[in-house]
Simulated assay, not measured.
Amino acid sequence: MSVDAIQFKNALKLWASGVTVVTAQSADQGAKGMTATSFSSVSVDPPQILVCLNKITDTGGALLESRHFAVNILASDQQDASNQFAGNCTQAERFASVTWEAGDNGAPLLSKALVSLECKVVQQIQAGTHWIVIGEVEKVVCRGGEPLLYYSGAYRQLSQA
């Protein structure tokens, strides 16, 4: 028996996660970015993370072209940025809505993100409709604040016990 797409998506809604914006710089097309919740640490030595990106996205194309990217972990007050980078608008419109600067590897770092990780691609694996991209973290920028969380189709915040 096979699990259908709706059943699969409904099950995964019950996984609480942080929210990231993955960014890359294309030599031909400029800054690219997209919201992603498929993000995880992989290794401490060497420091590695992974992101999963749909193969048809222009952000994924820029990332694989440049072989460098950044993962910007969003802060609790960045719901608008998350929505903008997930929406059906141009890349120029996405980046116009946030303050950012180019990192050492050229990938855009969102200035108000909780954390920005600058990475180089060390491996890419095709899995169905997506690329699993493993990146070695070359630089970390940490800022203060609380994380933006996503659970059951809605943004959440940490409760103070």
Score class of each variant (00 low, 15 high):
residue 89 C to G: 03
residue 27 A to G: 14
residue 92 A to I: 11
residue 124 Q to V: 09
residue 150 Y to D: 06
residue 108 P to W: 04
residue 145 G to Q: 13
residue 3 V to K: 09
residue 96 A to F: 01
residue 65 E to R: 03
residue 61 G to H: 13
residue 10 N to T: 03
residue 88 N to L: 14
residue 21 V to Y: 10
residue 117 L to D: 08
residue 70 A to R: 05
residue 22 V to F: 05
residue 32 K to M: 11
residue 58 D to Y: 02
residue 119 C to K: 01
residue 91 Q to A: 09
residue 90 T to N: 11
residue 60 G to K: 03
residue 75 A to P: 01
residue 150 Y to T: 04
residue 31 A to I: 04
residue 70 A to W: 10
residue 28 D to I: 09
residue 115 V to H: 00
residue 126 Q to K: 15
residue 30 G to S: 05
residue 8 F to S: 08
residue 70 A to V: 05
residue 100 W to E: 09
residue 73 I to M: 12
residue 18 G to V: 10
residue 2 S to M: 15
residue 89 C to N: 13
residue 24 A to F: 06
residue 53 L to F: 02
residue 130 H to V: 10
residue 134 I to S: 06
residue 28 D to E: 14
residue 11 A to Y: 06
residue 116 S to L: 07
residue 158 L to E: 03
residue 62 A to Q: 06
residue 130 H to F: 07
residue 133 V to S: 12
residue 109 L to A: 05
residue 123 Q to I: 00
residue 28 D to N: 12
residue 90 T to I: 06
residue 153 G to L: 13
residue 92 A to R: 07
residue 156 R to K: 09
residue 95 F to M: 08
residue 30 G to V: 06
residue 80 D to N: 03
residue 95 F to K: 08
residue 105 N to Y: 03
residue 131 W to F: 13
residue 138 E to C: 04
residue 66 S to D: 05
residue 145 G to D: 01
residue 80 D to S: 06
residue 105 N to H: 06
residue 41 S to A: 11
residue 106 G to I: 00
residue 10 N to Q: 09
residue 110 L to M: 10
residue 98 V to T: 07
residue 82 S to G: 03
residue 54 N to I: 07
residue 156 R to A: 10
residue 32 K to P: 00
residue 122 V to L: 05
residue 152 S to H: 08
residue 16 A to F: 12
residue 34 M to N: 00
residue 126 Q to S: 15
residue 3 V to L: 15
residue 33 G to P: 00
residue 125 I to Q: 06
residue 140 V to E: 14
residue 139 K to R: 13
residue 111 S to I: 00
residue 142 C to W: 04
residue 105 N to M: 10
residue 84 Q to I: 14
residue 136 E to T: 02
residue 15 W to C: 02
residue 135 G to K: 05
residue 104 D to S: 07
residue 99 T to H: 10
residue 82 S to D: 00
residue 69 F to I: 02
residue 28 D to L: 12
residue 142 C to K: 08
residue 21 V to A: 14
residue 94 R to C: 04
residue 19 V to H: 00
residue 143 R to M: 10
residue 17 S to W: 09
residue 154 A to L: 10
residue 5 A to Q: 11
residue 53 L to S: 04
residue 106 G to M: 02
residue 148 L to P: 09
residue 40 S to T: 14
residue 81 A to W: 01
residue 41 S to R: 01
residue 55 K to Q: 12
residue 2 S to H: 15
residue 37 T to F: 00
residue 24 A to N: 00
residue 71 V to W: 12
residue 43 S to A: 08
residue 125 I to Y: 11
residue 146 E to V: 11
residue 135 G to N: 12
residue 84 Q to H: 12
residue 74 L to Q: 01
residue 137 V to G: 12
residue 143 R to N: 06
residue 74 L to H: 00
residue 159 S to W: 03
residue 155 Y to H: 07
residue 91 Q to L: 05
residue 10 N to Y: 02
residue 42 V to A: 12
residue 16 A to E: 14
residue 131 W to Q: 08
residue 149 L to Q: 08
residue 54 N to G: 06
residue 30 G to D: 04
residue 123 Q to N: 10
residue 40 S to M: 14
residue 86 A to D: 13
residue 64 L to Y: 01
residue 143 R to A: 09
residue 29 Q to L: 12
residue 110 L to C: 02
residue 70 A to E: 07
residue 51 V to A: 01
